[in-house]
């Protein structure tokens, strides 16, 4: 009897867990295979390196990553991790990457604000001094911080990839304000700017970001063709890593813990059967 109830409960839970439909619309995200999917998935280090390059050369012009430090690039599982340098602060490649970037500091003698080359202990420098400045230079809305972007949007890296590769010419009948762009993957409600049939309002919304990627905009050090799709995929993977840098450690730890728990459960089951073997119940 209770078993029947359980089945009903499971069915009901599946209903509850279903995606909540919002008043806004959005095209179905592109389905991309990621190396870090699944219980054994790992980040592809070379892909992360390319992704960092895309972020550094394209995205970082407008988007901050305030939770990221240069040392993160060289930590275990990071794009530039080198087993020779378990302490990422000593990784020479990370040091030189940091050195290329100027960060703000205070002069120790005069107290004046100065610029100096970054060290691995420094945060990624933000492109704008504050949010007001960021908004003022970007049509009134500050570009969001990308540190945990892959966790902050439904779909994560697939969303990032879809947005970056999803810029299309708006369909006839859709008015897009100047300085804005149509993107079917950006959640929005376009019914107000649509002159066609109200039953066929285009999916998606208007985004303030112009299409950021272009073929060969970034030169990859390996032989990967620098297409928009590759750039988008690599930077989405990089952002997925940045949002969850301990993911590999977590899955590895989890595997061990789960194997242990299963064995433990089996042992307890036998122990339980033996203790109860002579009790009618």
């Amino acid at each position: 009897m209770l078993r029947k109830g359980l089945t009903l409960a499971a069915f009901g839970l599946a209903l509850v867990a279903g995606p909540a439909m919002a008043a806004t619309t959005q095209a179905e995200l592109k389905d991309i295979h990621w190396s870090f999917e699944g219980p054994f998935g790992k980040f592809d280090q070379v892909q992360l390196q390319r992704g960092y390059k895309v972020y550094r050369e394209v995205c970082s012009a407008c988007h901050s990553m305030n939770l990221m430090y240069f040392r993160n690039l060289g930590q275990k599982g990071g794009p530039f991790y080198d087993p020779k340098y378990p302490n990422p602060n000593e990784n020479p490649y990370v040091k030189s990457l940091a050195h290329d970037i100027q960060v703000g500091d205070i002069d120790q003698d005069t107290g004046d604000p100065v610029k100096r080359p970054a060290t691995p202990a420094d945060k990624f420098a933000a492109p704008f001094p504050n949010e007001v400045a960021a908004a003022a230079s970007n049509g009134g809305k500050a570009p969001p911080d990308l540190s945990v972007m892959a966790k902050a949007r439904e779909g994560g890296p697939a969303y990032i990839y879809s947005i970056l590769t999803g810029f299309v010419t708006p369909p006839a009948g859709l008015t897009i304000p100047a300085g804005k762009y149509y993107n079917p993957y950006f959640p929005g409600d376009l019914s107000g700017s649509w002159t066609g049939s109200p039953d066929h309002v285009p999916q998606g919304g208007v985004i303030g970001m112009p299409p950021p990627l272009a073929p060969n905009k970034v030169t990859f050090d390996d032989k990967t063709p620098s297409t928009v799709a590759n750039q988008a995929r690599d930077v989405a993977a990089f952002l997925a890593w940045a949002a969850e840098p301990k993911m590999e450690e977590r899955k590895q730890f989890g595997l061990g813990a789960m194997i242990y728990l299963v064995i433990f459960s089996v042992l307890l089951w036998f122990s339980y059967r033996r203790i109860w073997r002579n009790v009618a119940h």
């Binding site: 813990a257 242990y260 728990l261 433990f264 042992l267 307890l268 036998f270 122990s271 033996r274 203790i275």
Partner: peptide, 18 residues
Amino acid sequence: RDFIHIVASVAALGAVGG
């Protein structure tokens, strides 16, 4: 019988320790 209980108890201690 004792053996399975001992193994289970040790496994429990191991889990807590881990």
